[in-house]
């Protein structure tokens, strides 16, 4: 049974369609990324899924329970929101005790274990308001991990963090992932989360453009080539005349081209660029990073519209 299942979710705010016909499932043990640019509907999706907002249409089940009755999961679900939910005047330990009262579920990890896990054992007595943003996020994660959650949802876990804080949180997520916990991460920081994800759902303008194992999503980019040229303007002009080829991204002198289903060979692309006088320096397979796959999917979505 899926730990988290969204079926044909729609959410509109007046005439604005924030989420359209979204469906995906997260199974136990997965680290699933809900990815998309700002405004793509990730947070709205999570709000509907967590029962904070009524969907216009569709249904959501979390740990076998409808999203409007998540309290019945009785501590099996942990959620970390974008802004850490903490009692700022109380100590780190008192915050954990307060959240334990709300959770009402006994057993599982003790407060000491969970503080040790997130690396806050030394700051047990410090006021939550005196913690740095990164430490605050770790404490928020600790409140979600205390007890015995089966599924933890993290909304924008890296937002506002500096590189050091980002590394700390990612290391923590990796540690949790290896322990077999099911995790859902909503973020637009693809480059950062890519190493920890096993699965992903990519959203653009409220629609799902891809979902599945990360390897499959990355695999869809076969046929992508990266050309480094001296004259990008000429190169782009030449490429625009080639049917079936698509320029996925362009950064200075580096252009990513998707030969897609045209059946063209890399040598043909090189020939076109040389003939156009673009000054081809190098042609190589484009590195299949999540960010590249994401750009390609966004571009495809734009083309379809």
């Amino acid at each position: 049974m899926a730990s988290f299942a969204i079926h044909s979710l729609h959410k509109s705010f007046g005439s604005v369609k924030a989420v359209q016909d979204l469906s995906f499932e997260v199974h136990p043990g997965q680290v699933h990324g809900l990815l998309g640019p700002n405004g793509s509907g990730k947070t709205t999706t999570l709000c509907c899924a967590l029962g904070l907002m009524r969907p216009t249409k569709g249904s959501v089940e979390v740990l076998g329970v409808s999203s409007r009755a998540l309290h019945r999961t009785r501590g099996r679900l942990g959620v970390v929101f974008d802004q850490p939910v903490l009692l700022k005047r109380r100590s780190v330990a008192a915050n954990l005790a307060y959240h334990a009262k709300i959770r009402g579920h006994k057993g599982g990890r003790s407060h000491d274990e969970v503080l040790d896990l997130v690396g806050l054992s030394d700051l047990k007595k410090r006021r939550a308001g005196a913690l740095s943003l990164g430490q605050g996020k770790r404490l928020a994660l600790a409140t979600a991990l205390a007890g015995d959650p089966e599924l933890v949802v993290l909304d924008e876990p890296l937002s506002g963090l500096d590189p050091v804080g980002t590394r700390e949180i990612l290391a923590l997520i990796s540690k949790l992932a290896t322990s077999g916990l099911t995790l859902i991460l909503s973020t637009h920081r693809l480059h950062d989360v890519e190493p920890v994800l096993t699965h992903a759902t990519i959203m653009v303008r409220g629609r799902r453009v891809a979902t599945g194992p990360l390897s499959e999503i990355l695999g869809r980019g076969e046929g992508m080539l990266q050309a480094t040229v001296q004259n990008p303007k000429r190169a782009l002009e030449a490429l625009s005349t080639m049917g079936g080829w698509q320029v996925c991204s362009e950064e200075g002198s580096v252009i990513d081209v998707d030969l897609g289903s045209s059946g063209a060979q890399p040598s043909e692309l090189a020939e076109v660029l040389v003939k156009a006088g673009a000054g081809l320096v190098r042609l190589q397979p484009a590195g299949q990073r999540l960010a590249d796959a994401f750009d390609r999917l966004v571009a495809q979505e734009s083309t379809l519209e």
Binding site: L50, L52, A69, L70, H71, G78, V79, V85, I102
Partner: peptide
């Protein structure tokens, strides 16, 4: 405002509670 209501409904309390 602080998010405590969100936290409560996702963990153990119904809205009427």
């Amino acid at each position: 405002e602080s998010g405590l209501l969100r936290m409560a409904v996702t963990r153990s309390a119904s809205r009427p509670a």
